[in-house]
Structure formats: structure tokens, C-alpha cells
Design a protein around this nucleic acid. Structure first.
Lengths: 353, 353
DNA sequence: TTGTACGCGTTATCAC
DNA sequence: GTGATAACGCGTACAA
């Protein structure tokens, strides 16, 4: 079969006249050997060109050091950056990640989970929204979700309420006379999705400060063309409805905020004085836009790190002889950061307009 | 240790009064059992709530169905989309991917490779540029690189020459009187990097068609601010140098093309008649830009699919009793597609300008 | 069609 | 400090 049989502990044992056990100890508890013997073995490893086999180790001790990840896509910068940060925790925690792209179909994602379980993953990080947390909680392994429905499982989320509150506050600070929040959340009455907090933060700020406001909830479709079309309509509507007021627009993501900026620029050649915009996500487009867009940044690095950390803590707990299982899921919250750019701070501009 | 011991073939064997072997056959060669017995075992699996253990299977038959991936980052859309497509091939080939983000340091990436080998990956896909192909070729497992130096290993690349040729041709087609190619490749004399082909395609087209042209090779730095600064200088230079000519700009990626578009829009309020632009990559920004940017699209889905396919073929070859090892590495080439948008086809605009 | 016996490469347990 | 031996869960000659 194989070209050359792999070098095993047995070969090293024969070569050094030690036992397999001692070789194993060399790797897992080297201090229990004399220094001389450590060196003998070290030399043998080089001589024989030994390559470790973690699969055998897994079978023997049950620790795969695998974490499963199910993420909806990598098209949105938000998700690809999240995966980036998750994978980067390898340097901190040493866990390897088995990643599946969820396609939104429950049956497919269940298949992925079964496959992950077959590889004896020690924990699971879920970013996909497909499978209810109730079902996830019954899988019998530690689970952490990020920014999704999380009633029955541990999770890490952005403080969306704070984000919405801050974004609205920024617009108010610049004396907007009406503040409009454009969001695509399906049901405004569904507080299970963390992102709903943005809406509540917006509403609360406006109510508390008695600011004229409007909430526009609209499904925009999935194509860029469709989004552009819907936002163009919304823009016309707003322009007609509040002609003489200074308008503050809080848009639920930077991609859509950028479309609005482009529509305005193409219509007026510049950003009109009576339009201020704030996006959400701190995605690259907020910086690459023709007018850089003020935005609320989710701290993706922290979200990922805390998610893995929370998961690792639970996985470690399970390895104890008498694990203390959680009675209630832990929900961590990460504060967002407000990034002031040109769509609210005109003085940041280059002076061309 | 564990809450409940896992159900194994042994348990099923006892429960059904078959032998372990028969249970194994049920999974790997079910036709060799009678239908009745298949049903008996199927029922037992449900009764006992059996969960398969692929780790044990790996140790027994040596097939991990793991492919290692080392990718430079997920910040650039090009890479995240590539990873997306690679992971998606799970549905076609069934291989799982162990992904590491290369940080550009040779020693770190070597560590990652050792870790991957310890998990007995069957093949390796490399997108990172860090480790020379010579060294990779000595790893003793099938390897495919994508869009990087590939002298000693199999690879899949975009036909960059064709892309450069097409992009230049598009500008020529619109009667540009001078065509300028802005690229950040370090050494223009290094044809080892596939992307160098773009430069050659540009040069050849201009020479063949006797078009006035200029090649600007410049390291732009890593920050967005730095890129903006450099490109602003370049723009001033070009404007001063060719004041009365229709200028065609072929920029080596869409991010930088977008910066140029923004600079022009902010200076003139619109895209001047004497500037035509073509980018490279078909990244989202080419569509999201205030003026959608004509671009050359790498067919990332095909690149990924062909890379995995090429790898799978070699991995399968190794599983045969008498593997035919490749004498020479195979290099596949994928044709890019030219996407005509507004920076060259003004009639595609919405008419605002 | 089904069963026996052993191998895969490491770790854990208990001796010495 | 070191060693013998039995797991870990499954695949596979070989035999019946």
C-alpha cells in the first residue's frame, strides 16, 4: 500500500532499546525521563525521521482538538472576517477547525453536524441561522453561537441596542431634525434575533430625546440591483416627505448605506447638506465609499475570541472527572464602536466638494 | 470520563448476534448481506443510537478524507471567495478541509504544515506565497497551488496574460490614445508569479497594435490611506503628462481602481470623458463603486473546483496498488472573463451625469 | 453470506 | 524512572 511504512513508537523503541511507553512519555511528560535518555530519544527521532500521528493519539485519548464551525457564507465581509478571526485563535488555543458553509437548508446543515460529530469534534461554533438553538442544545457537546438566536445555548453577541442607540445619537448630535432607520429585519416583533436590538436602540433614543423619527422595515431582496431599486424608491419617498428638514439616515448595514451614498452623489454630484448617514458593520465598503461612511463597528476580533474562549472553557470542564455542567447558557455581550467618518463629519472631507 | 460510553460495532454485534465484521460490512459493503439482516442491523442502529466514529476508521484504513489549506488571509474578497468555493466542493468530493491562515512567516507556515501532516491529510492546497514550491514538492503528499509560484508542484492559475490582453483590448476598442497599466508587482522581471502575465499581456497588446502606453510599477503600501496617497500622485502625474489624450487606465485590482474612480469623482464631480478604467478581480467593489468598474473576473469557482479535482485525482492515484506518480507537475489554466461596466461603457450609466 | 484474528499507532493502568 | 499489557473502534485477510 504505502510507499514506506510510517515510523512508529515501536520502531523508536526498538532503535533505542526503550519501551513504547517511554517513547510516549518523552512526548507527554518528558520530565519523567532522565536528560540523557531524552537526548537519546531525540536523536532517534531525527535518525528515523519520525512524524507524529495525531489520529492514533485521538483514538487513544479521545481528544481531537477539533472545533466544528458552521457559517452561512463567506461572501459578506462580516462572515469572512469572523472566520478569519476564529481560525486565528489557533495560535492562542491550539484547536483546529472543521468548517462547513451552511446553505440555509436544515437537512443539509444537519448532515454537516453529523459529519462533524463523526470526527469527534469537541465543540461547535454556529453562525448560521438555520437550526433552532433548542435542537443545537440537544447535541450533547459544548456549543457557542455568534450573533443569532441563542435561547438555549451559549452565545456571544454584539450589544446591538447600544449600537443602534449610539448611531442614532450621532445623528442627533449633528442636529438632524428627523431620523430615519432603514432595516431589513423580517419581523420587527422578533426580539430573538440579536440584531433586533438596533431597532430598539434607535426607537428608545428618539423617544427619550423627543426626536421626530421613522422606522422603515423592508425586505430588499438578494441582488445588488434589487437593493439599489428599493433604496432609490425609499430615497424619493424621504426626499418628498421631509423636503425642508435635516435628515439623519441610520441604515442597518454599510453595503446599503453605500448604495444610498452613490444614489445621492449621482443625483446631486455631492452629498447634500441636509443628508447625514450612518451605517453598520464597519465593513471595508464604509472606507472605500466615495464618501467614507460613518458606521458602527462590531468588534469581530473580540466576538470571535470570546466565542472560542467560552467554548474552550466548556470543553475543558467536560474533561474533568466531575464536570460542572451549565444550568443556564452563558451569553456574552461585546460593545460596538462608533466610527465617525465623512457622511456625518463633513470636515473630514478632502475639500473637493 | 465520558458520560456514557460510545456505542460501538461490538455493542451492535452483541445486540444483533452478528459479528463485528458483519456490522462493518453493513456500512462498507451492504450488498453482501441479505436484506433481512440489513434491516435487523438498521433497526439495532436506531435502538442503540449508534454514532459513527471516523477517527477509528481512519486509523484502520488510513483514509482521513482531509485536505489541508493554507491561505494568506480572508480580508481580500479574492481569498475569502476562493475558500468559500473550496469548502463548497465538499458536496462534490466529500473531502473535509483543515484551514490555516498563513501569516507570511515561513516558520509559522511550516509549523502549520507539520500539524496538518500529523492529522494525516491526504493532500494540500496552497494559496499562500510564503514557501517555495521546491520545498512543498518534497513533502511527499499531493499538492496543488492556486495562483502562485508553482514550478515544482501542480497548480491552477488564471490565464493572466489573456486577462491583461483583454483589458488592454477593451481600452483600445474605445479609442484610448494612451493606455497606462498600474501594477504593484515587486519585480517586473519575475515571471514566476502568475500575475506577472497581466503585465506581459498589456505590453504585447500595445506593441502589436502600436498603441502609446506606459507601465507604472509601484509598491503602494498596505493601508488604504497609503494607496489613496500614491494613486493621487499617479493621477496628477498622468493628467499633467497626457492632458489632451484620451487615457485608458488598466489597474491591477478593483480596490485600487475604485480609489481612482473616487479621486476622479471627488475632483470633477463626475468621471471625465477622457478617462476610461478597467480593474481586475471582479470583486464586489467593482459593482458597488459609485461608477461600476469594468473588470477582468477570475473564475474563482472554476479555479477552486479544478484545484480540488486535480488534487483528488492524485490522491486517488496514490491509493492504487501501483500508483503512477507524475513525472512533471500539471498546470491548469482558467480563462478569465471580461466584464464591461460603466467606466468603459458610459451608456450603461443611469443618466444622472 | 458470515466469522475469526489481527493490525492501525497511540495512551492509560498498573506493575516493578 | 521504566516496562508490559490492555484498551481505543474499525477494517480486512483469511477461513469457513
Amino acid at each position: 500500500m504505502k510507499q514506506k511504512k510510517n515510523v512508529t513508537f515501536n520502531d523508536i523503541a526498538n532503535y533505542t532499546h526503550f519501551s513504547k511507553t517511554t517513547i510516549s512519555r518523552y512526548f507527554n511528560n518528558p520530565d519523567s525521563l532522565t536528560l540523557e535518555n531524552q537526548e537519546i530519544i531525540a536523536k532517534a527521532l531525527v535518525d528515523l525521521d519520525y512524524k507524529e500521528n495525531k489520529v492514533a493519539r485521538i483514538l487513544a485519548n479521545g481528544k481531537t482538538e477539533f472545533i466544528g464551525v458552521i457559517i452561512p457564507n463567506l461572501f459578506l465581509h462580516y462572515y469572512s472576517e469572523m472566520l478569519n478571526q476564529i481560525l486565528s485563535t489557533y495560535e492562542s488555543f491550539g484547536y483546529k477547525f472543521l468548517v462547513f458553509i451552511g446553505n440555509g437548508q436544515e437537512e443539509t446543515e444537519r448532515r454537516y453536524i453529523q459529519e462533524l460529530l463523526a470526527y469527534k469534534i469537541e465543540g461547535l461554533i454556529i453562525l448560521s441561522h438555520t437550526i433552532p438553538s433548542k435542537e443545537l442544545s440537544e447535541l450533547g457537546i459544548p456549543i457557542v453561537t455568534i450573533e443569532r438566536e441563542d435561547k438555549y445555548v451559549c452565545s456571544v453577541n454584539t450589544d446591538n441596542y447600544m449600537g443602534g442607540y449610539q448611531a442614532t445619537g450621532l445623528l442627533a448630535e449633528h442636529n438632524c431634525e428627523v431620523i430615519i432607520h432603514i432595516n431589513y429585519i423580517n419581523s420587527p416583533a422578533n426580539p430573538d434575533v440579536p440584531a433586533y436590538g438596533r431597532v430598539q436602540g434607535f426607537l428608545d433614543f428618539c423617544t427619550e430625546h423627543q426626536i421626530k423619527h421613522e422606522l422603515i422595515l423592508k425586505e430588499m431582496g438578494n441582488t445588488y440591483e434589487s437593493i439599489r431599486h428599493h433604496l432609490s424608491d425609499i430615497l424619493d419617498e424621504i426626499t418628498g416627505k421631509y423636503p425642508n428638514l435635516k435628515k439623519g439616515l441610520f441604515i442597518s448595514n454599510d453595503t446599503q448605506a453605500n448604495v444610498l451614498v452613490n444614489l445621492l452623489i449621482r443625483k446631486y454630484g455631492k452629498l447634500p447638506e441636509d443628508f447625514l448617514l450612518v451605517g453598520f458593520d464597519n465593513s471595508p465598503i464604509s472606507e472605500e465609499a466615495v464618501i467614507p461612511i460613518s458606521t458602527v463597528g462590531q468588534q469581530i476580533d473580540k466576538l470571535s475570541y470570546e466565542a472560542v474562549k467560552l467554548l474552550v472553557e466548556q470543553m475543558n470542564e467536560r474533561k474533568k472527572r466531575k464536570p460542572m455542567l451549565l444550568k443556564e447558557p452563558i451569553h456574552k455581550v461585546i460593545t460596538p464602536v462608533l466610527l465617525r467618518k465623512e457622511t456625518t463629519e463633513k470636515e473630514l472631507g478632502t475639500g473637493f466638494f
